[in-house]
Design a protein around this nucleic acid. Structure first.
Lengths: 227, 227
DNA sequence: CGGAATAGTAAACGTACGTTTATTTATAAC
DNA sequence: GTTATAAATAAACGTACGTTTACTATTCCG
């Protein structure tokens, strides 16, 4: 029954789904293979190991995704329209929009968000390598649109940006902890982008801590209504 | 050898450490009990189950921590000095400062950060309940200092805030993905607070997406240099 | 046809897990 | 000093895991 490896894709699809739903460590190969209706040993045959399967699941979507992010940055630069908002959207837009396609896309985005907080060193190494070109492309671009920001300060703020992005991507149940509307799960990705881009842009453009401390010192002698 | 339950504390301390280092699911009771040099069955004797142990580890630190956060908010209100920056610092300061005490504190903070992205429904329920009073206290305060912000918009931005906080707290290895300085791990908590508060305050105060869209429409006819 | 090579499978391997049971040890009360 | 109670332990229970092995079926090409 050698059917052009329909088996391989079924494993990848099912693994992507279950990994996103339950996490990497909590999903066993037995769960994956029984859901996919393939033999248990097929995973080790096609991917060598569970670790190999995880890497394959990530690589399959991550490569075109990062290509799209870089493509958008290229276009911004070609048009000479590189704004901070545009940069943020080029970076976080593609993964969030991927969650629109209902099927595998949204599952993968959640999986990717969770990847940032999983506890497997091989994963971190894999993601670091898979995102290397992306980071090297975007970092200088951010420096260009925020020239007044010291290098270290910019990198800290980009960390904060990644924190927001991964949290949103994980589609965490914790969102409902503070949530007012119950239908926040079905919120459109474009809606989230519309809300998160101004937040991040303002944060990245915020006055430096030092400047702020000085300004506060000055105002401290006056009535305290600077909020 | 019934020694006022020194065993119980040794289990809690060791569990806290290993949970933070390796994650909840990846840490076995056998690892905990052998590190703590107590009998394997002692965990089930004192805490009933692994789940009970996890809850106990969290509760031990979370209760005084949230009490401190609320105490700071109380003081701000008593002094009539409720600013957005003060609110943010009252909320994220205590957990970040807890990571200063070198020992259990920093471990717990990492564990807490990771809790937000673990895949166990009992955990989410436990955290939701443990943070209920905290949320009910802070939500109206944020509304007060940001009266012009629509309710839904505020809640979304608070989600983003939690995203940043948990990401920073998790002390994620991913931080090094973009990091410039290699010693970012040892960065002082006060330093992180100093950097993150202006970022979050600016984000929370950002113009509404609608306003921004309108402003952009207006400027769109003019040369595009609004960055 | 026939024999590689590829794909797929059933069954077992050894290991580790959380939990339970039965038993022993220490503590304090009467 | 005996007894009730709490704490600690050694050993085993059943289950699930990722991986390996040996084997069968399919495909492709000479």
């Amino acid at each position: 029954m050698a059917e052009a490896s329909d088996t391989k894709d079924r494993i990848l699809d099912t693994a992507e789904q279950l990994f996103a739903e339950r996490g990497l460590g909590q999903t066993s190969l037995r769960q994956i293979t029984s859901h996919a209706e393939v033999n248990l040993a097929a995973v080790n045959y096609h991917f060598g190991s569970k670790e190999g399967l995880i890497k394959a699941v990530l690589a399959r979507r991550l490569e075109p995704l990062n290509r799209e992010r870089i493509r958008r940055l290229d276009r911004l630069e070609r048009q000479g329209r590189v704004t901070l908002e545009g940069l943020i959207e080029a970076f976080i837009g593609p993964p969030l929009e991927l969650s629109r396609d209902g099927g595998g896309g949204s599952r993968f985005v959640r999986l990717m968000g969770r990847t940032y907080t999983e506890h497997a060193s091989f994963l971190h190494e894999h993601m670091r390598h898979a995102n290397e070109a992306l980071v090297n492309r975007f970092k200088p671009a951010f420096r260009t649109v925020l020239p007044e920001l010291p290098k270290t300060e910019l990198y800290w703020r980009l960390h904060f940006l990644v924190g927001v992005m991964s949290y949103v991507m994980a589609g965490n149940d914790m969102m409902q902890l503070l949530a007012a509307s119950r239908n926040s799960e079905q919120e459109e990705p474009r809606e989230i982008i519309r809300r998160v881009v101004p937040f991040l842009a303002a944060g990245l453009r915020a006055p430096l801590p030092e400047e702020l401390a000085q300004a506060r010192d000055v105002l401290e002698t006056a009535p305290h209504d600077l909020a």
